[in-house]
């Protein structure tokens, strides 16, 4: 029995977790969802809609965002079935540990935000927001071992720091973070998908 056995087991686990992100489709879909949400936000903030529609959309905004997440999830599964699983085999990642960690991160995020918003200035909230999103990217990096998720998290961290210094509102900072992460996800996802397609479809 060698030390290598347990290390090899950990390596296999990491390799298996990484497969979920190897095609880039998750980033493409969620990048598109984030851009759609940020566009909708922009339209709301700029009050481009007539006042009645604006009031309805504003009221339903949270439901619309959650709806977009479900649609994104459904589209992602369909694309996986059509372009990926035929070549790589079908799998659904286990979210047990990751889900628990993300839940803790979300509660920390909510706690920091509420705490900082009421007790400190919005500058601190903006900084915590950037830090929280960066923490989320750290979680995804630690789970997948893929450095590109660190890069994605870097942008909201910078926006958080700059927004805090420039005294941007929480709403504006959040909108910028959603937009930038959406763009980065989309670009990264397309690049990864192209490499994946070359590798998997050329292998035959």
């Amino acid at each position: 029995m060698e030390n290598g056995n347990v290390e090899e087991v950990n390596e296999i686990r990491k390799k298996v977790r990484r497969t979920w992100w190897e095609d880039g489709l998750e980033e493409i879909v969620w990048g598109a969802v984030l851009l759609f949400v940020s566009f909708g936000w922009f339209v709301l903030e700029a009050k481009m809609l007539s006042s009645n529609i604006y009031r309805v959309v504003q009221f339903l905004w949270a439901i619309i965002v959650i709806g977009c997440c479900f649609v994104g999830y459904w589209i992602h599964r369909k694309l996986k079935a059509k372009y990926v699983w035929k070549k790589t085999g079908y799998s659904i990642p286990s979210y047990n540990k990751l889900a628990r960690v993300l839940l803790v991160v979300t509660f920390l995020f909510g706690g920091f935000l509420v705490f900082s918003y009421f007790l400190f200035s919005s500058r601190i909230s903006v900084l915590f927001l950037g830090l929280a999103v960066f923490m989320g990217s750290l979680v995804t990096f630690s789970s997948s071992g893929l450095k590109r998720f660190l890069v994605v998290g870097f942008f909201p961290l910078v926006i958080g720091i700059v927004g805090s210094i420039a005294n941007l509102s929480l709403g504006t900072s959040l909108y910028l973070m959603v937009f930038v992460v959406g763009v980065v996800f989309l670009i990264s996802g397309i690049r990864v998908y192209r490499e994946f397609k070359k590798k998997v479809y050329n292998e035959g």
Binding site: N5, V9, I12, R13, K15, V16, R17, T19, W85, T88, G89, Y90, S91, I92, P93, S94, Y95
Partner: peptide
């Protein structure tokens, strides 16, 4: 079998081709 179980431990579920590839 250790490799197979390790692969399945990392996923909720997987098909034969995925386990074969991994």
């Amino acid at each position: 079998r250790l490799a197979i179980l390790t692969i399945l431990f990392g996923v909720k579920e997987a098909d034969f081709n995925f386990i074969l590839r991994m």
